[in-house]
Amino acid sequence: MAEQVALSRTQVCGILREELFQGDAFHQSDTHIFIIMGASGDLAKKKIYPTIWWLFRDGLLPENTFIVGYARSRLTVADIRKQSEPFFKATPEEKLKLEDFFARNSYVAGQYDDAASYQRLNSHMNALHLGSQANRLFYLALPPTVYEAVTKNIHESCMSQIGWNRIIVEKPFGRDLQSSDRLSNHISSLFREDQIYRIDHYLGKEMVQNLMVLRFANRIFGPIWNRDNIACVILTFKEPFGTEGRGGYFDEFGIIRDVMQNHLLQMLCLVAMEKPASTNSDDVRDEKVKVLKCISEVQANNVVLGQYVGNPDGEGEATKGYLDDPTVPRGSTTATFAAVVLYVENERWDGVPFILRCGKALNERKAEVRLQFHDVAGDIFHQQCKRNELVIRVQPNEAVYTKMMTKKPGMFFNPEESELDLTYGNRYKNVKLPDAYERLILDVFCGSQMHFVRSDELREAWRIFTPLLHQIELEKPKPIPYIYGSRGPTEADELMKRVGFQYEGTYKWVNP
């Protein structure tokens, strides 16, 4: 592979701008107003304001973009700056750019259920340069409990009458099928589907988006991507930290609602779906819905739930269990780990287990898709061969690698495990991989909904998990304890083995 010439960040961002501006969906010269509902909250200060700053800094926003914060707290732009700027990672050389960014910011205080507050917000936006005809993007960085009041008031008082209007809704989209349907029906009564952007930030990850290209742009994968060759698929999300004093919020939802029903299920769809007619948003989402419709409700015998306990040999936070978090209700049975087996009941995947695993306070930070292939028929190497695996590593250190057998150097035919490896950090030294939120917010500006969740996708996802969630809430089974920093409950490994996964433990990928 030829040595790549190092590029400056300015040059890299210039390439990104060229890609972005050559499309006809990006209205570079139009006025846009980006409204952050819930501007005083954690999500706004840690993710949304920093993301908008990065896009502005790199010249990736339309030229005439204004940012308006809205929340109940009586704040000023200076207050917003004070709480969000520490997350910007701005350099001293960017000081003038930073001043320009905050000059485009404003803030309006108001209630979430008060019509007069929204009329005041609308008047404020109209007073901005060309504000009355601007395109408006409303980001709901809010708890779902206020979605209905907020969307109703936005629709009645704050819509642009000339430009387009788009609304970005953060997960969780309800707690179960019934609450999700209620919320979807409410929002759909106010906005068209092409105006609604239900954001799952995992769909903005580079390697998640790469799944489609790997599958449908490489001839070698087509013939082997089926039940005849693939023994099982494992989708993993692991965090090495616990709730760390923020367990009160987590306890309301648990690990299945927080990660599995959305992030992991979306990745499953991209692995299992048929080739779409095109890369058009609805063509892709149509195929994802077909996959979900082929999955039956989760069966309790295919589920393992766990909850982390303190590690007596650990240090600091590792010595504390979930129930030691003062914000967690006493005696909570909320799971911090889950392993679930699903089956896609169609011709391509009949009988292939899709194993979804996620948890907190585990032994490493990792998100990946792992396809394990069947054993080689007619073994001539005296059971020395391990199964081939194709691994798409989402985070950290984005990579695609194939675990395969090669001859060990020497005189004899002794096979050993090795890999074919594409590590993004080595291959793409001159490429700026956008943060997931950067990519998705740019998608909203461009009107691309491919990486957002459609209402029928959402409904099918909740259909699969709601009976299990209701059973857990009714019966309150005690989750299996696992030690902070471990791989999780051993019962999860036993479940995976029972459905056909072979864990060798003899080879570990190392970032080159």
Score class of each variant (00 low, 15 high):
E3A: 08
E3L: 08
L7Q: 15
S8R: 10
S8K: 15
S8M: 09
R9F: 10
V12R: 14
V12G: 07
G14R: 15
E18V: 06
E18W: 07
E18D: 12
E19V: 08
E19F: 09
E19K: 09
L20D: 09
L20C: 07
F21T: 13
Q22R: 13
G23K: 14
G23I: 15
D24N: 14
D24S: 12
D24K: 11
A25Y: 15
Q28H: 10
S29F: 14
S29W: 12
D30G: 10
T31A: 10
T31K: 15
H32D: 08
F34V: 11
I35E: 03
I36G: 02
I36N: 03
M37Y: 10
A39C: 08
D42R: 00
D42C: 02
A44K: 03
K47G: 00
K47F: 04
I48L: 05
I48R: 01
I48K: 00
Y49P: 01
W53Y: 11
L55C: 11
F56D: 01
F56A: 00
D58E: 13
D58K: 09
G59N: 14
L61H: 01
P62Y: 05
E63R: 14
E63M: 12
N64H: 13
F66P: 06
I67L: 07
V68T: 06
G69T: 02
G69S: 06
G69A: 10
Y70T: 10
S73Y: 03
V77C: 13
A78I: 09
I80M: 11
R81C: 08
R81D: 05
R81M: 10
K82C: 11
S84T: 13
E85I: 11
E85L: 12
E85C: 08
F87P: 06
K89S: 14
A90I: 13
A90H: 06
T91M: 14
T91A: 15
P92H: 15
P92S: 14
P92R: 11
P92Y: 12
E94Y: 07
L96A: 12
L96N: 14
L98T: 05
L98Q: 06
E99P: 05
D100E: 06
R104I: 11
N105P: 03
S106E: 09
S106M: 09
S106R: 12
Y107G: 00
Y107H: 08
A109R: 12
A109C: 13
G110M: 02
Q111R: 13
A115F: 12
A116G: 13
Y118T: 07
Q119A: 13
Q119L: 11
R120S: 13
R120P: 10
L121K: 02
S123L: 15
H124Y: 13
H124K: 12
M125C: 13
M125S: 08
A127Q: 15
L128V: 12
H129F: 13
L130G: 15
L130T: 15
Q133Y: 13
Y139I: 05
Y139G: 03
L140Q: 04
L140G: 01
P143M: 01
P143N: 09
P144K: 01
T145L: 06
V146W: 04
V146Y: 02
Y147V: 02
E148C: 09
A149Q: 10
A149N: 13
V150C: 12
V150P: 05
T151G: 08
T151H: 09
K152M: 14
K152I: 13
N153C: 11
N153S: 13
N153L: 13
N153M: 12
H155L: 06
H155W: 11
E156V: 14
E156W: 12
E156P: 07
S157V: 14
M159Y: 11
S160N: 14
Q161F: 13
Q161R: 07
N165Y: 06
I167R: 02
I167Y: 07
I168L: 12
V169S: 00
E170P: 01
E170R: 02
P172L: 04
P172R: 01
P172S: 00
P172D: 02
R175S: 12
S180L: 06
S180T: 04
D181N: 13
R182D: 14
R182Y: 13
L183A: 02
L183V: 05
S184Y: 09
N185I: 10
N185G: 13
I187P: 04
I187L: 13
S189Y: 10
S189P: 10
L190S: 08
L190E: 07
F191G: 03
F191S: 02
F191E: 01
F191K: 03
R192I: 09
D194E: 14
D194Y: 09
I196N: 00
I196S: 04
Y197V: 00
I199F: 06
I199W: 03
H201W: 01
H201N: 03
Y202W: 02
Y202A: 02
G204K: 02
G204S: 05
G204D: 03
K205A: 01
K205W: 00
E206W: 07
E206S: 06
V208M: 14
L211V: 13
L211E: 01
V213M: 12
V213D: 02
L214T: 06
F216E: 01
F216Y: 05
F216N: 01
A217R: 02
I220F: 13
I220R: 01
F221S: 08
G222V: 09
G222P: 11
P223Y: 08
P223R: 07
W225D: 01
W225S: 02
R227M: 09
R227A: 09
D228G: 09
N229M: 07
I230L: 11
I230Y: 00
C232Y: 05
I234S: 14
L235C: 12
L235G: 08
T236D: 09
F237T: 08
K238L: 01
E239A: 02
E239N: 00
P240W: 08
P240M: 09
P240N: 14
F241K: 03
G242C: 03
G242E: 05
G242M: 03
T243Q: 02
T243Y: 06
G245S: 10
G245R: 08
G247S: 06
Y249K: 03
Y249Q: 04
F250R: 04
F250W: 05
D251M: 00
D251L: 01
D251I: 01
D251T: 06
F253A: 11
F253D: 03
G254N: 09
G254A: 05
I255Y: 02
I255Q: 06
I255T: 05
